[in-house]
Design a protein around this nucleic acid. Structure first.
Lengths: 236, 236
DNA sequence: TGCACGCCTGACGATAGCGTGAAACACCCG
DNA sequence: CGGGTGTTTCACGCTATCGTCAGGCGTGCA
């Protein structure tokens, strides 16, 4: 196993399965990360207090305190990326994980390659954006160009006629390509926190938005449904 | 952040560093410039095609196409000032030798005041050199001509009889074509921040202004309503 | 002091856009 | 393959928002 470079991103894997964890550690380490492994929430907490970490990969199912409340606490106390890992058939948990501030989620079983790719994506976003999220006034996302101060969006140079909500949704999604957003997160972004609307209203806006940008909902190119979770934007 | 004056020079910052860029934008805006921020060359290109810009500040290190070829293309296609920002001091000499047509060079790290000073210097030179440049206080926006110092406005050469507020509104809106202004922003720049008027008062002035410039409120050409947000000026 | 002008406000339709429910459809899991 | 759950879409009622008008008020000027 190659020694990671001194400036390698530091990942903390929180996973109680002691057959799986060493494999993950090994793979991520081979990919150039500096990886530590905690088997439960208490160990993770202790490690986070003692060491700098850039990204936490949390299994939801943990002995003792579960990954959800750990996620919430990490998000509150540390400025790091979070990827939640969940066993299949835990839709509610997955959804809540995102709302607790996870940057991405990964259903089990996942390929190590997939985890590596997502870890890199999240780290890229974290390093560049930090916790604050200043957005360029002009942003290019694939064939889209989104101008925040003018509230205009173009696709292949063609101006889009979007409503307020549609524009806000597109700007939020495209502003963080690849990141998964739950409906509640999107609602909050779009309505500024206080609204009593059902999160299903987001579906309607996404539907309208897809129609306006010519995205076939059966095989969407840009705005992709993450089943049971929400939506993510894909620039290509 | 203070709103820049309507006749402010327009700067396009092309910088991919999400931590640095907002600081620069903020500082330049506070210095009285109108600033837009593009995170990569593609976004910058698109913006330059669509909007008037007086000065581009380019980072050499950009994702995708680098700042050097972007600089060359801007120099070829647009008659605007260019300041290149280089990552390291020694590169500045090399860049200078390449003669890409930049008007000035700034090595990183630079102070915001230094950038501000150089921007002003370059803009001064551009204004002096370009014979086609209108006098500083007079701005052309589509068929409108707005003279800030004399506080007069003409449409197709025909003088408009505007009240003080109407003129300020028109000057502010037309001074940054396409940009969306909320009623609060408009109120603030018209009343200088000290007023307790309802933002709906803006609607009345817009209504009166539209009548005077012959803009049908159902299908406005120049002053367009952005539903739920505010207003924007469109020169065509 | 009286008048003219411009600004603000409140009221009143008109309407764009939003949220909701229902129905059709797609997807996951056993 | 079938049940259950999540998603897409549609039409419709509702609300927030907008455009306009008339009236009151302050200000500047003659």
């Amino acid at each position: 196993m190659a020694l990671p470079p001194p400036d390698a991103a530091r990942i903390l894997l929180v996973e109680d399965d002691d057959r799986l964890a060493p494999l993950v550690v090994r793979h991520l380490a081979d990919s150039g990360f500096q990886v530590d492994w905690a088997a439960d929430a208490a160990a993770a907490d202790a490690h986070l207090r003692a060491h700098a970490v850039d990204l936490a990969v949390l299994d939801i199912m943990l002995p003792g305190e579960d990954g959800l409340s750990l996620c919430r606490r990490i998000r509150r106390d540390h400025d790091i990326g979070i990827i939640m890992v969940t066993a299949r058939g835990q839709e509610a948990d997955r959804i809540r994980g995102l709302d607790l501030g996870a940057d991405d989620y990964l259903p089990k079983p996942y390929s190590l390659w997939e985890l590596e790719a997502r870890a890199k994506a999240v780290l890229r976003r974290c390093v560049r954006a930090g916790s604050a999220q200043p957005a360029p006034t002009i942003r290019q996302a694939g064939p889209f160009q989104i101008d925040a101060s003018r509230r205009t969006a173009t696709l292949h140079g063609q101006a889009l006629d979007l409503t307020r909500t549609e524009f806000d949704l597109l700007a939020r999604l495209a502003g963080d390509s690849g990141r998964v957003f739950s409906r509640d997160m999107l609602l909050e972004c779009v309505r500024g926190g206080e609204t009593d609307a059902f999160d299903r209203a987001v579906d309607t806006h996404i539907s309208n938005l897809r129609r306006k940008i010519g995205d076939d909902p059966k095989t969407p190119t840009f705005i992709r449904t993450v089943w049971g979770i929400g939506y993510r934007f894909h620039p290509s």
